[in-house]
Protein backbone atom coordinates (compact mmCIF):
# COMPACT_ATOMS: atom_id res chain seq x y z
CA UNK A 1 0.00 0.00 0.00
CA UNK A 2 2.73 2.41 1.06
CA UNK A 3 4.70 1.57 -2.07
CA UNK A 4 1.70 2.31 -4.24
CA UNK A 5 1.14 5.75 -2.64
CA UNK A 6 4.81 6.50 -2.92
CA UNK A 7 4.80 5.44 -6.56
CA UNK A 8 1.72 7.55 -7.35
CA UNK A 9 3.19 10.55 -5.52
CA UNK A 10 6.47 10.32 -7.40
CA UNK A 11 4.91 9.81 -10.80
CA UNK A 12 2.44 12.61 -10.12
CA UNK A 13 5.23 14.94 -9.13
CA UNK A 14 7.27 13.93 -12.14
CA UNK A 15 4.28 14.50 -14.37
CA UNK A 16 3.69 17.95 -12.90
CA UNK A 17 7.31 18.99 -13.33
CA UNK A 18 7.64 17.50 -16.78
CA UNK A 19 7.99 20.22 -19.43
CA UNK A 20 4.80 19.11 -21.19
CA UNK A 21 2.67 19.96 -18.13
CA UNK A 22 4.75 22.54 -16.30
CA UNK A 23 5.35 24.86 -19.22
CA UNK A 24 1.79 25.48 -20.43
CA UNK A 25 0.28 25.33 -16.96
CA UNK A 26 2.71 27.03 -14.57
CA UNK A 27 5.64 28.84 -16.11
CA UNK A 28 5.61 30.63 -18.51
CA UNK A 29 2.04 29.48 -19.14
CA UNK A 30 -1.22 29.93 -17.29
CA UNK A 31 -0.22 30.85 -13.74
CA UNK A 32 2.71 33.07 -14.74
CA UNK A 33 0.55 34.76 -17.37
CA UNK A 34 -2.24 35.39 -14.85
CA UNK A 35 0.12 36.98 -12.34
CA UNK A 36 1.63 39.03 -15.15
CA UNK A 37 -1.88 40.08 -16.19
CA UNK A 38 -2.62 41.39 -12.70
CA UNK A 39 0.67 43.29 -12.53
CA UNK A 40 0.55 44.65 -16.08
CA UNK A 41 -2.95 46.11 -16.01
CA UNK A 42 -2.10 47.81 -12.71
CA UNK A 43 1.19 49.02 -14.24
CA UNK A 44 -0.60 50.39 -17.30
CA UNK A 45 -3.00 52.43 -15.19
CA UNK A 46 -0.22 53.56 -12.86
CA UNK A 47 2.16 54.65 -15.64
CA UNK A 48 -0.58 56.59 -17.41
CA UNK A 49 -1.52 58.20 -14.08
CA UNK A 50 2.04 59.21 -13.26
CA UNK A 51 2.64 60.73 -16.70
CA UNK A 52 -0.64 62.64 -16.43
CA UNK A 53 0.38 63.80 -12.90
CA UNK A 54 -2.34 61.77 -11.18
CA UNK A 55 -2.27 59.01 -8.58
CA UNK A 56 -4.05 56.16 -10.39
CA UNK A 57 -5.24 53.11 -8.44
CA UNK A 58 -4.47 53.84 -4.80
CA UNK A 59 -7.04 52.98 -2.16
CA UNK A 60 -6.95 49.18 -2.42
CA UNK A 61 -3.74 48.34 -0.53
CA UNK A 62 -2.38 51.83 0.03
CA UNK A 63 1.09 50.71 1.09
CA UNK A 64 1.77 49.12 -2.31
CA UNK A 65 0.28 52.02 -4.29
CA UNK A 66 -2.86 50.04 -5.12
CA UNK A 67 -1.14 46.95 -6.56
CA UNK A 68 -4.05 44.71 -5.51
CA UNK A 69 -6.58 46.76 -7.50
CA UNK A 70 -6.73 44.13 -10.24
CA UNK A 71 -7.32 41.32 -7.72
CA UNK A 72 -10.31 43.27 -6.46
CA UNK A 73 -11.52 43.89 -10.03
CA UNK A 74 -11.15 40.20 -10.86
CA UNK A 75 -13.14 39.20 -7.77
CA UNK A 76 -15.87 41.63 -8.77
CA UNK A 77 -15.99 40.16 -12.29
CA UNK A 78 -16.10 36.68 -10.81
CA UNK A 79 -19.09 37.35 -8.59
CA UNK A 80 -21.14 39.59 -10.87
CA UNK A 81 -23.91 38.00 -12.89
CA UNK A 82 -23.24 36.90 -16.46
CA UNK A 83 -26.13 38.32 -18.42
CA UNK A 84 -26.81 36.59 -21.73
CA UNK A 85 -28.96 38.86 -23.92
CA UNK A 86 -31.91 37.32 -25.77
CA UNK A 87 -30.74 38.40 -29.21
CA UNK A 88 -27.31 36.73 -29.14
CA UNK A 89 -26.22 33.43 -30.64
CA UNK A 90 -25.96 31.73 -27.27
CA UNK A 91 -23.49 28.91 -27.93
CA UNK A 92 -21.04 31.11 -29.82
CA UNK A 93 -21.55 33.97 -27.35
CA UNK A 94 -20.53 31.85 -24.36
CA UNK A 95 -17.91 29.62 -25.95
CA UNK A 96 -16.06 32.02 -28.25
CA UNK A 97 -14.35 34.17 -25.56
CA UNK A 98 -13.35 31.05 -23.62
CA UNK A 99 -11.87 29.38 -26.71
CA UNK A 100 -10.27 32.68 -27.68
CA UNK A 101 -8.64 32.92 -24.25
CA UNK A 102 -7.34 29.35 -24.59
CA UNK A 103 -5.97 29.99 -28.07
CA UNK A 104 -4.11 33.12 -27.01
CA UNK A 105 -2.23 30.90 -24.55
CA UNK A 106 -1.35 28.23 -27.08
CA UNK A 107 1.73 29.86 -28.69
CA UNK A 108 3.41 29.65 -25.27
CA UNK A 109 3.40 25.84 -25.61
CA UNK A 110 5.98 25.90 -28.39
CA UNK A 111 8.12 28.69 -26.91
CA UNK A 112 11.01 27.01 -25.10
CA UNK A 113 12.08 28.12 -21.65
CA UNK A 114 15.62 26.77 -21.94
CA UNK A 115 17.74 24.41 -23.99
CA UNK A 116 16.40 21.29 -22.25
CA UNK A 117 12.98 22.51 -21.23
CA UNK A 118 10.32 22.86 -23.91
CA UNK A 119 6.81 21.42 -23.99
CA UNK A 120 7.05 20.82 -27.73
CA UNK A 121 10.47 20.85 -29.33
CA UNK A 122 9.57 20.75 -32.99
CA UNK A 123 11.65 21.42 -36.06
CA UNK A 124 9.20 24.13 -37.17
CA UNK A 125 8.23 25.55 -33.77
CA UNK A 126 8.47 29.16 -35.00
CA UNK A 127 5.93 28.46 -37.72
CA UNK A 128 3.63 26.69 -35.25
CA UNK A 129 3.77 29.70 -32.91
CA UNK A 130 2.99 32.11 -35.76
CA UNK A 131 0.14 29.94 -37.01
CA UNK A 132 -1.39 29.73 -33.53
CA UNK A 133 -1.14 33.50 -33.16
CA UNK A 134 -3.24 34.09 -36.27
CA UNK A 135 -6.19 32.18 -34.73
CA UNK A 136 -6.80 35.16 -32.43
CA UNK A 137 -8.51 37.44 -34.91
CA UNK A 138 -10.84 34.81 -36.35
CA UNK A 139 -12.23 33.99 -32.91
CA UNK A 140 -12.54 37.69 -32.11
CA UNK A 141 -14.68 37.95 -35.26
CA UNK A 142 -16.90 35.14 -33.94
CA UNK A 143 -17.22 36.98 -30.62
CA UNK A 144 -18.26 40.18 -32.34
CA UNK A 145 -20.68 38.44 -34.72
CA UNK A 146 -22.32 36.36 -31.98
CA UNK A 147 -23.01 39.45 -29.85
CA UNK A 148 -25.49 40.86 -32.39
CA UNK A 149 -24.64 44.43 -31.40
CA UNK A 150 -23.62 47.28 -33.67
CA UNK A 151 -20.63 48.30 -31.55
CA UNK A 152 -19.40 44.70 -31.39
CA UNK A 153 -19.90 44.39 -35.12
CA UNK A 154 -17.94 47.56 -35.91
CA UNK A 155 -15.19 46.44 -33.53
CA UNK A 156 -15.02 43.04 -35.18
CA UNK A 157 -14.95 44.62 -38.63
CA UNK A 158 -12.05 46.85 -37.58
CA UNK A 159 -10.21 43.88 -36.11
CA UNK A 160 -10.74 42.01 -39.38
CA UNK A 161 -9.24 44.88 -41.40
CA UNK A 162 -6.32 45.21 -39.02
CA UNK A 163 -5.59 41.50 -38.82
CA UNK A 164 -5.38 41.24 -42.61
CA UNK A 165 -2.83 44.03 -42.63
CA UNK A 166 -0.63 43.10 -39.67
CA UNK A 167 -0.28 39.37 -40.21
CA UNK A 168 1.90 39.66 -43.32
CA UNK A 169 4.53 41.99 -41.76
CA UNK A 170 4.42 39.82 -38.62
CA UNK A 171 5.17 36.62 -40.48
CA UNK A 172 7.75 38.14 -42.84
CA UNK A 173 9.68 39.84 -40.03
CA UNK A 174 9.67 36.61 -38.02
CA UNK A 175 10.83 34.70 -41.10
CA UNK A 176 13.68 37.16 -41.63
CA UNK A 177 14.91 36.12 -38.17
CA UNK A 178 14.58 32.50 -39.26
CA UNK A 179 16.61 33.25 -42.40
CA UNK A 180 19.20 35.07 -40.33
CA UNK A 181 19.70 32.12 -37.97
CA UNK A 182 19.08 29.47 -40.60
CA UNK A 183 16.48 27.59 -38.59
CA UNK A 184 12.78 27.38 -37.72
CA UNK A 185 13.50 25.75 -34.38
CA UNK A 186 13.30 28.33 -31.57
CA UNK A 187 15.86 26.50 -29.44
CA UNK A 188 18.35 26.49 -32.32
CA UNK A 189 17.66 30.18 -32.95
CA UNK A 190 18.58 31.03 -29.34
CA UNK A 191 21.65 28.79 -29.50
CA UNK A 192 22.80 30.63 -32.65
CA UNK A 193 22.22 33.97 -30.90
CA UNK A 194 24.34 32.81 -27.96
CA UNK A 195 27.16 32.19 -30.43
CA UNK A 196 26.67 35.14 -32.82
CA UNK A 197 25.02 37.88 -30.76
CA UNK A 198 21.44 39.05 -30.39
CA UNK A 199 19.20 39.21 -33.43
CA UNK A 200 18.27 42.84 -32.79
CA UNK A 201 21.88 43.86 -33.56
CA UNK A 202 22.03 41.77 -36.74
CA UNK A 203 18.70 42.81 -38.18
CA UNK A 204 17.36 45.90 -36.36
CA UNK A 205 14.85 46.47 -39.16
CA UNK A 206 13.06 43.19 -38.52
CA UNK A 207 13.19 43.84 -34.77
CA UNK A 208 11.51 47.25 -35.19
CA UNK A 209 8.85 45.87 -37.53
CA UNK A 210 8.10 42.99 -35.16
CA UNK A 211 7.86 45.35 -32.19
CA UNK A 212 5.45 47.66 -34.04
CA UNK A 213 3.40 44.63 -35.10
CA UNK A 214 3.22 43.46 -31.47
CA UNK A 215 1.79 46.85 -30.50
CA UNK A 216 -0.42 46.86 -33.60
CA UNK A 217 -1.92 43.40 -33.21
CA UNK A 218 -2.58 43.49 -29.45
CA UNK A 219 -4.48 46.79 -29.79
CA UNK A 220 -2.20 48.88 -27.65
CA UNK A 221 -2.02 52.62 -28.28
CA UNK A 222 -1.73 54.13 -30.91
CA UNK A 223 -3.41 51.15 -32.62
CA UNK A 224 -6.17 50.64 -30.07
CA UNK A 225 -8.72 50.75 -32.88
CA UNK A 226 -10.74 47.54 -32.52
CA UNK A 227 -11.77 48.28 -28.93
CA UNK A 228 -11.67 52.08 -29.07
CA UNK A 229 -13.31 52.94 -25.80
CA UNK A 230 -14.37 56.48 -26.66
CA UNK A 231 -15.88 55.46 -30.01
CA UNK A 232 -17.38 51.96 -29.84
CA UNK A 233 -17.67 51.21 -26.08
CA UNK A 234 -15.22 48.24 -25.85
CA UNK A 235 -15.47 46.84 -29.38
CA UNK A 236 -16.23 43.11 -29.70
CA UNK A 237 -16.85 42.71 -25.94
CA UNK A 238 -19.57 45.34 -25.63
CA UNK A 239 -22.36 42.85 -24.77
CA UNK A 240 -20.33 40.89 -22.24
CA UNK A 241 -20.69 41.00 -18.48
CA UNK A 242 -19.13 39.34 -15.48
CA UNK A 243 -16.31 36.88 -15.83
CA UNK A 244 -16.73 36.62 -19.62
CA UNK A 245 -15.98 40.34 -19.85
CA UNK A 246 -13.05 39.83 -17.49
CA UNK A 247 -11.67 37.24 -19.92
CA UNK A 248 -12.20 39.63 -22.81
CA UNK A 249 -10.33 42.37 -21.01
CA UNK A 250 -7.36 40.08 -20.34
CA UNK A 251 -7.11 38.49 -23.77
CA UNK A 252 -5.16 41.26 -25.50
CA UNK A 253 -2.68 41.34 -22.60
CA UNK A 254 -2.18 37.57 -22.79
CA UNK A 255 -1.55 37.91 -26.51
CA UNK A 256 0.87 40.73 -25.82
CA UNK A 257 2.68 38.47 -23.35
CA UNK A 258 2.96 35.50 -25.71
CA UNK A 259 4.14 37.70 -28.59
CA UNK A 260 6.68 39.37 -26.30
CA UNK A 261 8.02 35.96 -25.33
CA UNK A 262 8.43 35.16 -29.03
CA UNK A 263 10.11 38.55 -29.57
CA UNK A 264 12.55 37.89 -26.72
CA UNK A 265 13.38 34.49 -28.23
CA UNK A 266 13.82 35.80 -31.77
CA UNK A 267 15.60 39.11 -31.22
CA UNK A 268 16.73 39.49 -27.60
CA UNK A 269 18.73 36.32 -27.16
CA UNK A 270 16.04 34.29 -25.36
CA UNK A 271 17.21 32.88 -22.03
CA UNK A 272 20.86 33.80 -22.63
CA UNK A 273 23.06 34.59 -20.74
CA UNK A 274 22.72 31.59 -18.38
CA UNK A 275 24.79 32.58 -15.36
CA UNK A 276 25.51 30.67 -12.15
CA UNK A 277 22.32 30.26 -10.12
CA UNK A 278 20.30 29.82 -13.28
CA UNK A 279 22.14 26.73 -14.56
CA UNK A 280 21.07 24.61 -11.57
CA UNK A 281 17.75 23.58 -13.14
CA UNK A 282 16.62 23.70 -16.78
CA UNK A 283 13.56 25.85 -15.94
CA UNK A 284 15.49 28.65 -14.24
CA UNK A 285 16.86 30.36 -17.41
CA UNK A 286 13.20 31.06 -18.16
CA UNK A 287 13.37 33.84 -15.58
CA UNK A 288 15.65 35.82 -17.91
CA UNK A 289 13.29 35.17 -20.81
CA UNK A 290 10.39 36.30 -18.64
CA UNK A 291 12.17 39.52 -17.63
CA UNK A 292 12.96 40.35 -21.26
CA UNK A 293 9.36 39.71 -22.26
CA UNK A 294 8.14 41.79 -19.31
CA UNK A 295 10.23 44.75 -20.46
CA UNK A 296 8.57 44.56 -23.90
CA UNK A 297 5.13 44.29 -22.27
CA UNK A 298 5.82 47.22 -19.97
CA UNK A 299 7.03 49.33 -22.90
CA UNK A 300 3.88 48.51 -24.89
CA UNK A 301 1.55 49.52 -22.07
CA UNK A 302 3.62 52.64 -21.42
CA UNK A 303 2.70 53.85 -24.92
CA UNK A 304 -0.90 54.43 -23.72
CA UNK A 305 0.26 57.64 -22.09
CA UNK A 306 2.27 58.79 -25.12
CA UNK A 307 0.05 58.39 -28.16
CA UNK A 308 -3.47 59.30 -29.22
CA UNK A 309 -5.37 56.80 -31.36
CA UNK A 310 -4.89 56.45 -35.11
CA UNK A 311 -7.88 56.40 -37.40
CA UNK A 312 -8.38 53.04 -39.08
CA UNK A 313 -7.32 54.37 -42.52
CA UNK A 314 -4.12 55.78 -41.02
CA UNK A 315 -3.34 52.46 -39.34
CA UNK A 316 -4.03 50.52 -42.54
CA UNK A 317 -1.84 52.91 -44.54
CA UNK A 318 1.00 52.45 -42.05
CA UNK A 319 0.64 48.67 -42.24
CA UNK A 320 0.46 48.33 -46.01
CA UNK A 321 2.89 51.08 -47.03
CA UNK A 322 5.47 51.16 -44.28
CA UNK A 323 5.42 47.93 -42.28
CA UNK A 324 4.92 45.74 -45.35
CA UNK A 325 7.80 47.43 -47.21
CA UNK A 326 10.07 47.43 -44.18
CA UNK A 327 9.33 43.77 -43.52
CA UNK A 328 10.35 42.88 -47.07
CA UNK A 329 13.48 45.03 -46.75
CA UNK A 330 14.33 43.23 -43.51
CA UNK A 331 13.99 39.88 -45.28
CA UNK A 332 16.38 41.11 -48.03
CA UNK A 333 18.66 42.43 -45.29
CA UNK A 334 18.80 38.97 -43.69
CA UNK A 335 19.60 37.40 -47.06
CA UNK A 336 22.33 40.02 -47.54
CA UNK A 337 23.89 39.08 -44.23
CA UNK A 338 23.74 35.39 -45.19
CA UNK A 339 25.38 36.11 -48.55
CA UNK A 340 28.16 38.12 -46.87
CA UNK A 341 28.68 35.23 -44.46
CA UNK A 342 28.91 32.70 -47.29
CA UNK A 343 31.21 34.90 -49.41
CA UNK A 344 33.43 35.96 -46.54
Amino acid sequence: MYDLINYLWETGLNLLFSPEIFEPLVFPGLIAAFSLLIVVIWLERKIAAIIQMRYGPYYISRHTEGALQLVADLLRFLFSEVIIPKSVDKIAYVLAPIILFAFTFLPIVVIPVSKDFAAIDHEYSLLIALALMTLYSSFLLIVSWASNNKFSFIGGLREGFLSLSYEIPLIISALSAAVLFDSFNLIEIVEKQAAMGWGIFYNPLAAIVFLVVIIYSTSRYPYEIAEAESEIVIGPFTEYTGILFGLGMGISYIKLYSMSLLYAVLFLGGWEPVVWPLNLHPVLPGIILFIKAFIIVAFSVFLRAVYPRYRIDQALRIAWWKLFTLAFLSLLFSYGIKIIEVMG
Binding site: I47, I50, I51, M53, R54, Y55, F302, L303, A305, V306, Y307
Partner: peptide, 16 residues
Amino acid sequence: KAIGTGLKYLIPRRLT
Protein backbone atom coordinates in the same frame (compact mmCIF):
# COMPACT_ATOMS: atom_id res chain seq x y z
CA LYS B 1 10.78 62.30 -29.44
CA ALA B 2 7.23 61.47 -28.33
CA ILE B 3 8.45 58.43 -26.41
CA GLY B 4 11.24 60.53 -24.89
CA THR B 5 8.70 63.08 -23.68
CA GLY B 6 6.71 60.24 -22.12
CA LEU B 7 9.83 58.92 -20.38
CA LYS B 8 10.64 62.41 -19.10
CA TYR B 9 7.30 62.58 -17.32
CA LEU B 10 7.70 59.12 -15.78
CA ILE B 11 9.11 60.70 -12.61
CA PRO B 12 6.19 61.06 -10.16
CA ARG B 13 5.25 64.72 -9.74
CA ARG B 14 1.62 64.54 -8.94
CA LEU B 15 -0.72 67.48 -8.93
CA THR B 16 -3.68 65.63 -7.45
